[in-house]
Amino acid sequence: MSEAVALIRLSGITKTYGSGQAAFQALKGIDLAIDAGDFVAIMGPSGSGKSTAMNILGCLDTPSSGSYEFEGVKVEQLSRNERALLRRNYLGFVFQGFNLLSRTTALENVELPLIYRGEPAAARHAAARAALRQVGLEGWEHHTPAELSGGQQQRVAIARAIVTRPAVLLADEPTGNLDTHTGEEIMELISALNRDQGITVLMVTHEPDMAAHAKRVIRFVDGRVDSDRRNGEAD
């Protein structure tokens, strides 16, 4: 592993929810380096802090202590706006619950990040259509989330995450709300994005079948990294 050029580096990250008597430490010191182009599956029992870590990695939340470097930039030293710009320009997030805008067509949902990037209308439409085609939703552009199946909604969410060509795709249990077959299709799609476009993928999953797609599997237990191995390596 080439630690020096790591895309993402976490050192001593902790996260405590609440304060005083009710305080709860969800992350108890995470050290992690992730290289560009990697495909990392994060596993572990429920409540072990996977989502908490993903949210910090995705700049959706801030750690209580520790350091997060993204391409050598210390994220905790960035302002709120700079973190928003980091999300806008480098990160794509896929949620377990899709989080699409309701009553808004697939095309408009996918266009949204490009609007914030100030892309002109024509380029925006073309890119959004291309992203929808890439996730296999050609012809569904004008359907709203209510008119789409769970698998289709997650595809829209993936299209929205990749339409900006992010460096990193973060997916927190992207197949958690889907049946096995649909889940497998979504996994194929994410694997292809990593394989063909070189997007770095960080993905939380419960299922070993899904984790088998990844190049590297990190296990969380009780707010700590319990194991970290490359797929194909012996335990």
Binding site: G58, L60, R80, N81, A84, L85, R87, R88, N89, L91, F93, N99, L100, L101, S102, L112, P113, Y116, R117, R160, T164
Partner: peptide, 19 residues
């Protein structure tokens, strides 16, 4: 509630607070 979640989505995909 709906609007707050909508705002969360917008912020998550990179909207600035002032936008």
């Amino acid at each position: 509630t709906e609007r707050t979640r909508e705002i969360g989505i917008r912020l998550a995909i990179g909207a600035l607070e002032r936008e």
